[in-house]
């Protein structure tokens, strides 16, 4: 426990400010190093133990896949549902959840400075970076 400082001269305040700023810089730089170490460690694990990587990826992507499956089901169900009055029709979502699609549509409308109900979206598709490289 540090002793409580009750009075500080102007000179001491300069020293205190310098020391405190150095501590903050050191703490955040240490976190930066920790992040690099963490990322490096994960890369090493993935490189030397692909089976474990596949297992972990499967665990984390389980939830995402479930969401995508739900999206597809909703679309298929929607085929037989009449569209609302004023609606431009249906939209095809490829590997995109309803929530993501809504956000993309809102961003596009905002960027174009056009009301959302005056735009027609035909499809939204998740483009994988790996496919782009090919």
């Amino acid at each position: 426990m540090l002793a409580v400082v009750e009075s500080v001269s102007i000179g001491e305040s300069f020293a205190l400010a310098g020391v405190s700023m150095s501590i903050i810089m050191a703490v955040l730089a240490s976190i930066m190093v920790l992040i690099y170490l963490m990322s490096g460690a994960f890369k090493l694990i993935d490189k030397h133990n692909p089976a474990l990587k596949a297992k972990i990826d499967a665990f984390f992507s389980k939830k995402k896949n479930n969401a995508s499956e739900e999206t597809v089901t909703v679309q298929e169900d929607n085929k037989n549902i009449a569209t609302a009055r004023g609606s431009c029709g249906n939209i095809v979502l490829n590997n995109v959840t309803d929530r993501e699609a809504a956000m993309i549509m809102a961003i596009v409308a905002d960027k174009m400075q056009t009301p959302l109900n005056e735009l027609r979206f035909k499809s939204i598709k998740l483009v994988d970076d790996k496919n782009l490289d090919k």
Partner: peptide
């Protein structure tokens, strides 16, 4: 992760204002 250093540098105002507040007669 380098952006952490920017987050640290942006705390400069805290400690400069601390010195100024001492100069203005506030207690520590």
């Amino acid at each position: 992760p380098k952006s952490l250093l920017l987050g640290a540098a942006a705390q400069l105002g805290i400690f400069t204002a601390f010195i100024l507040a001492i100069v203005f007669g506030f207690g520590p």
